[in-house]
Amino acid sequence: MPDRTRPIRKEICLNETELNLIQHKMRQLGTHNFGAYARKMLMDGYIIKVDYTEQKKLAAAVNRIASNINQICRRINSTGHFYETDVADLKDRLGDVWELLKVRQKEEL
């Protein structure tokens, strides 16, 4: 077809669920032309980029606390004693987690 106004062809592969979702959105828009819909969405659609830096920091902090708790529990189970320094360390780490949560909450508000 040499007279086409759009000679460049792009193809995509979809599964059944993705196709159904696209068709549902096209029905909501009232269009039946997939090419027009795809062009419009690809050129004018929104791009959302999420920064997970704070969530990763929070997950790492929680993981460190969980690891410390596990070590302390093992020690208590084997010796029957716990140490005040362990409790203080856990409180410090928990304070770090709360600080991360407060910062994240302020950013969202």
Rank of each mutant, 00 (worst) to 15 (best):
H24E: 13
T5A: 10
E108W: 01
R6N: 14
F34I: 13
C13H: 11
A38Y: 00
N68Q: 06
F34E: 04
C73F: 05
R4S: 14
T79F: 09
Q28Y: 00
I69P: 01
N63K: 10
I72A: 06
N20D: 06
L21N: 10
L21Q: 12
I22G: 00
R39F: 00
T53M: 08
Q28M: 02
N15A: 00
P7E: 12
I76S: 01
I12H: 03
N77Q: 12
R39P: 01
T85M: 11
L29D: 09
M41G: 05
T31S: 02
L94A: 08
S67K: 09
I48K: 01
N68W: 02
E54W: 14
E54Q: 13
R74K: 13
L94W: 02
K57R: 12
L29G: 08
M43C: 11
R74P: 00
I47H: 14
Q105H: 06
A36W: 03
L90Q: 05
D92P: 00
K91M: 14
I47M: 10
T79A: 06
K25W: 04
W98A: 15
P2K: 15
R39M: 01
D96S: 10
E84T: 14
M26C: 01
Y52I: 15
K106E: 13
L42H: 00
V97G: 05
H81D: 15
E99Y: 04
G30Q: 02
Y46D: 07
L101G: 02
Q28I: 08
R4V: 06
D51L: 03
R93K: 13
Q55C: 12
E99S: 07
E99V: 09
E107R: 12
I47D: 09
T17A: 11
V87T: 06
F82N: 13
C13W: 07
E107H: 10
I65C: 01
G30L: 02
T31I: 04
E108F: 10
Y37A: 07
L101M: 12
L21T: 14
T17P: 00
N15Y: 00
H81G: 12
L14I: 10
M41K: 07
K106I: 13
R75P: 06
N70R: 02
G80P: 03
L58C: 02
L29Y: 05
T17R: 15
V97N: 02
G80E: 07
C73M: 15
M43E: 12
T17K: 14
D44H: 11
R75V: 13
E16V: 12
E16S: 09
K56M: 15
S67F: 14
Q55A: 15
L19S: 11
E16H: 06
P2W: 12
D3H: 15
R64T: 04
A60Y: 10
I12G: 03
L14V: 04
R6Y: 11
T5D: 07
G80T: 08
Q55V: 10
A60R: 03
S78E: 12
